[in-house]
């Protein structure tokens, strides 16, 4: 008997309670994935727990050290002035999602819980070692994003747990997100990359999307380029053309893309190294 009741909780605890009371219930946030599945008859859960009225999920908080973003924060909010000033690459990623209509509906928590390889916020979250706060019947727990997203559209989130918020450390320095698709709008990523440069720790973080079952860090590329950058160059850090070329190769090595209806493995591997290098060059100057 599909979708026989819809819970409309107003707090996270009520949402958890509703999940306990209705086994098999589906959480509904922005609906940009789930409602498509219902419309096409692919999903008919016994019940739905709708999160639109849970105001505490819409909060976000910026401190000097970190940014805590409520799971109900929409892509439109992430692309807005406040969050884009502290997390410009997250804002850039959010602005590449769908259309204004989709960005007004889709949420950060939905992107995490859906765990699509093409989830546009996930590379930046992966680059920043995001922690995900979950709440269930026995209380809350904080889990690294890499332990939440376990495979293509699979997570370690329990059926009676709700994604409450995502915690990101702030990094002093430039950050970029780039994505390749067939249009500049309304497109699911064929490949994506987030680059975060830390001007104090002198490190570089690179995470890739749509080129593996889960978002991946390009650890060898990170180590190589952090070593190769002249961090104390006048006018800001810079890297040689040879170092950037090697960086791109190591990025490609970190990818394990597939061929599917959106693209080929070969194109994805090529595209991801081009955009990762371009993103890095927008953060770090090329030495003459």
């Amino acid at each position: 008997m599909p979708v026989a009741r819809v819970a409309v909780p107003t707090t996270v605890d009520e949402a958890v309670q509703a999940l306990r009371e209705t086994p098999g219930a589906q959480l509904l946030a922005g609906g940009t994935d789930f409602c498509v599945e219902v419309n096409f008859g692919l999903r008919r859960p016994p019940a739905v727990v709708a999160l639109r009225r849970v105001r505490e999920l819409r909060r976000y908080e910026v401190t000097p050290a970190s940014v805590v973003i409520g799971a109900g924060t929409t892509y439109a909010d992430m692309g807005g002035p406040e969050l884009s000033s502290v997390l410009p690459a997250l804002a850039a990623a959010a602005r590449t999602v769908g259309s204004p209509q989709i960005r007004n509906a889709g949420t950060l928590g939905g992107n995490v819980a859906t765990a699509s390889p093409a989830g546009d916020t996930l590379p930046l979250l992966t680059a920043l070692d995001a922690r995900v706060r979950l709440r269930g019947p026995s209380g809350g727990r904080t889990v690294a994003l890499g332990e939440v997203v376990t495979g293509v559209k699979t997570t370690s989130i329990a059926p009676d747990e709700v994604v409450v918020e995502v915690v990101l450390d702030r990094r002093p320095g430039p950050q970029q997100f780039l994505k390749v698709g067939t249009r500049n709008a309304m497109v699911i990523a064929i490949a994506s990359a987030a680059v975060v440069v830390d001007l104090e720790a002198h490190d570089v973080r690179v995470a890739l999307g749509s080129v593996a079952p889960v978002p991946v860090r390009a650890a060898a590329a990170e180590a190589h380029i952090a070593d190769a950058i002249d961090w104390r160059a006048a006018g800001g850090p810079r890297a040689s053309a040879a170092a950037l070329a090697r960086f791109a190769e190591l990025v490609a090595d970190a990818a394990s893309p597939i061929t599917d209806h959106r693209s080929t493995s070969e194109y994805r591997r090529r595209a991801v190294q081009v955009i990762a290098r371009r993103a890095l060059e927008r953060c770090v100057a090329r030495a003459a």
């Binding site: 026989a4 819970a7 409309v8 107003t10 009520e14 309670q17 639109r52």
Partner: peptide, 19 residues
């Protein structure tokens, strides 16, 4: 703002349902 549920306001941590 998300607004409140017209289906019955929740109180005391009990979620409201539309059935």
């Amino acid at each position: 703002s998300p607004g409140r549920a017209g289906a019955g306001d929740a109180s005391g941590g009990v979620p409201a349902y539309v059935q």
